[in-house]
Every structure is written in structure tokens, then in C-alpha cells.
Design a protein around this nucleic acid. Structure first.
Lengths: 135, 135
DNA sequence: TTCATTGCAAAAGTTTTGCACGTGC
DNA sequence: GCACGTGCAAAACTTTTGCAATGAA
């Protein structure tokens, strides 16, 4: 997606379109590998050397709150981000750390009467095909 | 569960039964609130002031690897631990941070041919009843 | 103009590491 | 006895915070 279209999309949803936010979103859209803040920062820094790490965190937080991105907390330490906001599952390889998308029906839990459910996530973990065959 | 029974359980599964590991597991079994490493450390320290934080991390890692505990990474930063290893969902309140268990059928994803699935997790987030009614 | 966002440095918080010592089996 | 676990301090990392300066609308 070109930056002008991202800017238009942001304005349409009353989301302040700063070049930094556009760059962060552009990167996550273009790299469907579920990058974390460090990877995003490293990349956007190349086109704008004055880009701050704080700004990456600010942008990611705002983008998630406004529904442009989804935080993926499958990995215990860092948070990964996904531009595909349609419901789907995430698989993480415990060997190489790679995260894969997969199709899964939305799960329906019971015993949550009175709770307001805002998000549902399905996380699998194990070995990806290449790591599985490595040993 | 008394400590002697935990020790017996560990030995049964060829899991070295040090008093520290027993204490950590005992705490997580007794407190079904999905504690994190800091909470566990704080508690076990009371009965043994020489208990090290490193040991808590070591014990938790080993206990997870041996299937005694489940790591809950629903929260982006710290890892929580659950002694209930039977399949169930976890709900986290984005307001108070409390984690609740709920029943949910095991999800069956598609498109993972060639992957070795070791674990499945279903995480919900939103507002718990009391936080929902707070505003 | 105005107020949200940015950028910097410093802090906070969790988890890991290296290594000597201690201990379960 | 020996391999494995423990404990300590320091390091590594991710993320947050405070605040002055900047810029989008």
C-alpha cells in the first residue's frame, strides 16, 4: 500500500496521520512476518535516521487501540504485531521463533457471563516443518 | 497438596525434587490466580529467605518443560503460570489485569500440515464483570 | 493556534547469564 | 561421586515515563 493511501485511510478514521505512524503501519503491512518493535524500529530508521524508539512504541500502541494492528503476545517476552486484523490463529515455532498464520474457527467459550469480550486469540506452539525435520 | 506428595509426584516422573522446586510448585498449585515469577518469588522467600530469584526462574522453566505447569503469555510483558494443565481458556481483564479460566472446546486449525503442534492456547481479553460495571 | 505527537535520556521491570558452591540421587 | 540445581551479581532486553520541542489539522 502506498503511503498516500495509508494517510487517507488514517484520516478517514480520524487517526492523526503523522509520517512516523504511516511509516510504522506501512512496514507492518508490507512485512507479514509479525515483526516486533525492535525490527520495526530498525527498519524505519533507515528512511528517517531521527526516528525515535519511543515513537515506534507510541505509534504501535495507538495503531492497536484504533484497530489498525493486532498485538500478538504468543511469545512470552516481546510483543509482535499483525496488520491482518481478521480473525485467525497464530503458530510459533519454539525452535526458530517464526510465527505463522493459520485458519481456525472463532472459539466460543462458556462461563463468561457478565464479561465484556473485546478480543479472542488462538495461539499454537510447536515445531515448524523445517525445524521438525532438522533433527 | 502436601509437600511430601509433591516430592513423590516429582520422583515418579524422574523430576529432581529439590525443596525449591517443591515450594514453587506448591505455591502455584495453592494459588490458582495465575501468579507470575515476581509473586511466586515474593511468597517463597517468606519461608526460605535465601531463596533466589534465579532459582524461581529455573524451577518455573523446568516445571513447564516437564508438564507440571503451563506458561500463560496472555499479558504482553510478564509470564504467568498455571498448575491446571487440562485444556481451558484464559481471559484477562485489560482494566485490573486479573486472569480468569473458562471452558472452551479445543480449537482445530487448518493449514498446519507438516507442523508439530505441542500446545494450544485460547486467550480472551476485555473487561471482567466488576471492571465493566465500574464506569 | 492548539493540542496531540515526537524525540531524547533515563528509569523501570522482567528475564538471562556466568560461575562458584551446594545437594539430590 | 557426579551431574544437576542453587544463589549471587551483573547484564541484557523490552517497554515506560517525564518533559521540552515540534507539527498536523
Amino acid at each position: 500500500m502506498q503511503k498516500e493511501r495509508i494517510t487517507a485511510l488514517f484520516k478517514e478514521k480520524n487517526f492523526r496521520a503523522t509520517p512516523q505512524r504511516v511509516a510504522v503501519y506501512d512496514y507492518v503491512c508490507a512485512h507479514r512476518t509479525h515483526p516486533d518493535a525492535a525490527q520495526i524500529y530498525e527498519s524505519v530508521l533507515k528512511s528517517d535516521p531521527s526516528f525515535s524508539k519511543t515513537t515506534v512504541y507510541n505509534a504501535l500502541k495507538s495503531l492497536c487501540e484504533s484497530g489498525f494492528l493486532i498485538p500478538v503476545t504468543i511469545d512470552g517476552d516481546k510483543v509482535h504485531y499483525d496488520a491482518n486484523v481478521d480473525f485467525h490463529g497464530h503458530f510459533i515455532c519454539t525452535c526458530c521463533g517464526e510465527i505463522y498464520d493459520f485458519d481456525v474457527p472463532e472459539p466460543h467459550g462458556s462461563g463468561l457471563g457478565g464479561f465484556k469480550i473485546a478480543r479472542k486469540d488462538v495461539y499454537y506452539s510447536g515445531l515448524c516443518p523445517s525445524c521438525k525435520n532438522k533433527n
